[in-house]
């Protein structure tokens, strides 16, 4: 799931959202942490991953949402 903030691959200890961070560090720190996605996520309570804070932000409800795709096999 990417680097921890104290990972040796992040030797300069870049923090989330720092526009000066090298791309591999940015991408790692910005990667969604699905393990912390709130259980109440739904069309009425949609979340967006906030890479600045490393948390899921509640968004405005989605209107006319219809699920797409087939369930996993």
């Amino acid at each position: 799931m990417g680097y921890a903030l104290d990972d040796p691959a992040n030797p300069d200890r870049w923090t989330r959202g720092d526009p000066a961070a090298p791309p591999h560090v940015q991408m790692s720190l910005e990667r969604e942490d699905l393990s912390t996605l709130p259980e109440d996520a739904s069309p009425e309570k949609p979340y967006a991953w906030n890479w600045l804070t490393g948390e899921w932000d509640l968004q405005d409800p989605v209107e006319d949402y219809e699920p797409e795709g087939e369930p996993p096999e």
Binding site: L37, A41, P46, A48, P67
Partner: peptide, 8 residues
């Protein structure tokens, strides 16, 4: 990014 199942 697009909304799906509680997240973008």
């Amino acid at each position: 990014h697009q909304y799906q199942n509680g997240q973008y």
